[in-house]
Simulated scan of single mutants.
Amino acid sequence: MRNHKQQEQMYLNCHTYYSLRYGTIKPEQLLAIASENGLQTLALTDINNTSACLDFVRLSSKYKIKPVLGVDFRNGAQQQFILIAKNNNGYKNINDYLSKFLHDSELKIPEIAPELDDVFVIYPYIHKKTYHLKEHEFLGIKPKDLNHLKFSKWNAFRNKLVVLQTVSFQNKKDFNTHRLLRAIDNNTLLSKLSKSEQGQETDRMLPYQELCDTYREFPELIKNTASILDKCHSDFDFSHENPNNPHSYIQNEALDFRLFRKLAYAGLHYR
């Protein structure tokens, strides 16, 4: 019998074209694809970017989808870990952590995720790699990892494993566009683009039953994935009654102008 709660909550790693020089899907299109597949919860985890998050949340009610927010932290195309916000405070903590790397291009994202309040961590499973997982940390198992998993010690610790079916493309055309973007980002010819610098053509949203069939020998992974997404909630007010933009930052617009002018000149040397 199909478990509807699990059916609705399966995707922890979804990208839009705000995953710059990597993703190809519009934020609203991602929601539409999810709706077509009968999903009611979806995690948006763009690569080193949160630009699409608020629009994603705003549009989610139109498609009757519960939005979950996070970031896929990568060095180039190399995935280090995924951070998923349990709530607004977790989302703020993820943004604060991400900002350090966006403000200093020489910094490299480490292999070990930080311990942030109200945040889940998903590490991509690598065969024979040693992991020391904390309570809020999990291993993401991709379909291609399942054969290795059968002979791994982690097969005995399924409570720490989740489904990691990445969504970056809608079809083959999208994947071809992605490869062009990766070639541009690496300043190389498409024919010389390394496999390690591109995603998999299979990084698409699969029908629920197909995904269940893929993980049928590991039902705990489906249950764990649904449990994580069920614990995540975001709350942003997009109503017209409560405008998000105040008329002035301090007492009035004239004082605002003087403050902004002062800050602009103070930061001019740095810029």
Rank of each mutant, 00 (worst) to 15 (best):
Q198P: 00
E201L: 13
A226D: 09
E217M: 12
Y215I: 05
R204S: 10
L180C: 12
E197M: 10
T214W: 08
R204G: 00
L180W: 05
S227N: 14
K192N: 15
E210N: 15
A226I: 05
L181N: 04
L206M: 14
Q198N: 08
C212L: 15
P207L: 01
L189R: 08
D213V: 06
M205T: 08
S191K: 11
L180P: 05
K192H: 14
A226L: 01
E201M: 14
E220K: 12
D213H: 11
P207R: 03
S227K: 13
P207T: 09
L181K: 08
Q200G: 07
K195T: 11
L189A: 11
K223I: 06
M205E: 02
T202W: 03
Y215T: 07
S227R: 13
D213Q: 14
R216F: 11
T214I: 15
S227C: 09
M205Y: 08
S194I: 01
E210Q: 15
L180N: 11
D185Y: 10
K195C: 08
L190D: 02
H178G: 00
R179A: 09
L221Y: 02
S194P: 01
D213M: 10
K195G: 02
E220P: 07
E201I: 15
K223G: 05
E220T: 15
H178Q: 00
E201S: 13
R204L: 13
Y208N: 06
L190Y: 00
E197I: 00
T188S: 08
N187W: 03
S196Y: 12
Q209W: 03
R179K: 15
E220S: 12
L181E: 09
H178K: 01
P207H: 10
T214M: 13
N224H: 04
Q198T: 14
I184C: 06
R179C: 09
Y215N: 06
R179E: 11
S227T: 15
N224F: 00
E201N: 09
P207G: 07
T202Q: 14
I222H: 04
A183F: 02
R204D: 07
T214H: 09
D213K: 14
T202H: 10
S227L: 09
R204F: 10
S194Y: 04
K223D: 12
Q200C: 11
N186C: 05
I222P: 07
R216L: 10
M205D: 07
N224G: 02
